[in-house]
């Protein structure tokens, strides 16, 4: 488990001032966001999605979302474990299961409006089980939430 609050750090929330007060007023939501981060990235039961793969996929998402602060965080989490380079947007895999996972991550991050049952069918056909489909969707959805809040926190901190 991470001890620091990842979102507040990536959002560069200052130690004092109006933004700090606003964030502290929502302290319980910041804690639950951190718990959600840990559940998505380093869950007790990772199923078929290893912690290393999760960190690489998160890195891929925040790069697509153009968030250098979170990119730094997820790069540190992925460490040397992302030997295959899945953290890099546009990278592909020869392996069918990984390829289906990367395609889902890219589509649901960039154009969720275009997602359909066929995307879930592709994951299933590539051997991703029901629980892992839910775990993967949860990871992608969480990181897309996190990078949007981080962006607004940084803007509010720069322009108090």
């Amino acid at each position: 488990m991470s001890d620091a609050n990842v979102l507040e750090k990536a959002g560069r929330v200052p130690a004092g001032g109006v933004l700090r007060e606003a964030v502290d007023f929502r302290a319980r939501l910041m804690e639950l966001t951190q718990e959600s981060h840990d559940a998505a990235l380093v869950p007790r039961e990772p199923g078929g999605l290893s912690h290393a793969l999760r960190a690489a996929l998160a890195q891929r998402i925040v790069r697509i979302c153009d968030d250098p602060e979170l990119e730094h965080h997820y790069a540190a989490m992925a460490g040397d474990a992302d030997a295959a380079g899945h953290g890099m947007p546009g990278s592909t895999s020869d392996e069918e299961r990984t390829s289906a996972i990367l395609a889902y991550v890219d589509k649901v991050t960039r154009t969720p409006r275009d997602a359909s049952e066929a995307d879930i069918a592709r994951l299933r056909a590539a051997g991703v089980g029901e629980s892992d489909v839910v775990r993967l969707a949860g990871l992608v959805a969480f990181v897309n939430y996190q990078c949007r809040v981080a962006r607004v926190l940084r803007l509010l901190g720069e322009q108090p």
């Binding site: 929502r26 939501l29 969720p112 409006r113 879930i120 959805a141 897309n144 809040v149 607004v152 926190l153």
Partner: peptide
């Protein structure tokens, strides 16, 4: 901040509901 949270929360919820 509250508006950013509710909007981003739906960036999350939509990605679950509209894909699953």
């Amino acid at each position: 901040l509250d508006l950013a949270l509710s909007t981003a929360l739906f960036g999350w919820a939509n990605r679950l509901m509209h894909t699953l």
